[in-house]
Write a protein that binds this DNA or RNA. Sequence first.
DNA 1: GTCGCCATACCGACCGGTCGGTGTCCAAAG
DNA 2: CTTTGGACACCGACCGGTCGGTATGGCGAC
Lengths: 207, 207
Amino acid sequence: MTRASTRKPGEAAGDDQAAVPRRLLEHATKLFAKKGFDRTSVQEIVEAAGVTKGAMYHYFGSKDDLLYEIYARVLREQTRQLESVASSDAPLRERLAAAASDVVVSSIDNLDDNTIFLQSMHQLSPDKRKAVRAERRKYHERFRGLVEEGQATGEFRTDKPADVVVDFFFGSVHHLGSWYRRGGTLSARQVGDHYADLLLDALRPPG
Amino acid sequence: MTRASTRKPGEAAGDDQAAVPRRLLEHATKLFAKKGFDRTSVQEIVEAAGVTKGAMYHYFGSKDDLLYEIYARVLREQTRQLESVASSDAPLRERLAAAASDVVVSSIDNLDDNTIFLQSMHQLSPDKRKAVRAERRKYHERFRGLVEEGQATGEFRTDKPADVVVDFFFGSVHHLGSWYRRGGTLSARQVGDHYADLLLDALRPPG
DNA sequence: GTCGCCATACCGACCGGTCGGTGTCCAAAG
DNA sequence: CTTTGGACACCGACCGGTCGGTATGGCGAC
């Protein structure tokens, strides 16, 4: 039960003994996604993670903090990924298609985070919610930049405001969790490619 | 049905003489949308509606019941509307466009219900949630029928599964509440027409 | 009288967060 | 080498408060 090895706290260890904060975050994510933030008690989280409340409140200021950290991690990762794809030197259509497909794949790979984002955002404290929204907004704006780039060159239709198109698309993405099931007929990448095709084709100039 | 004769002694009758169950549902909807289901106490609801807990538990079996009734009402209305549009004798593309635009407009007209649907579905008791899902499923299937009809005639592309397209579209619709604000530059109908265009154009056969 | 409608007082079950305490490790002092 | 002190990581009983739900009783209508 008690660890026999001498190991620095906060550092990852062997596969059987992950750091406490990480374990907490991991199990909290699962429980929040399954039962919702308010329905999940701190007691349940710490029991799942195999620690006690004392440990949790040692690392996190509040239950709210736990939720915020989950958001922040996902946002950082998605933003990093988008930036990497969007700033490559591939043709615009390919960059947009890759960005669209990738965000679908990463959303499916991490359906729990997606679900939490959808259902528990409004349960964050106002200031933390504001911070999350600001980050999310930056992400959307970067994505919208790609659409506007194509509209400027005439590759994409200009009769639809770019932000409407972006909101249209991300609505679909955020809702993957409500219908996608692992083990179904479609892989994450297949769904991503379908979604990217639908977006790109919806953006073709009319006529 | 109307109880004009019985007045509360402590409180002025005011202009709203609506029946108690209706008032409860109305205020519950607003509060659930604003604060979330779990964060709204029964006490708050009955105070907003100007009654007491006794009255509420006389008409509704539980707080859960209140949420269920809100869902059921919205679903009934949307299903009725879709059926009416889908079964007209207009050309297929027009029927699908009208159905798409209408569901956007009605979702915007009733953003509160939309928000609740999005955030509080998983807080329903399992059996009630099952009932709601079943109804929702019927709605989607009717909508999907329109897409499949167009695929059969060759009007729509056949390289995308109809259910993927439908989930893609309804993801967007369900997420209207997270970005649409009244008083913005776009009217509900304008957004509806944009969304319908994007859907229809995404369905054009490729090439 | 009794039946629908509702007010009020109250209950038991949590829940988030706190706080005094414990075990362990390490570094400096003796 | 041994002692000591104290920083860090964690434990778990406990507290104030809230919540959904209920028991009971009153009151007007028939």
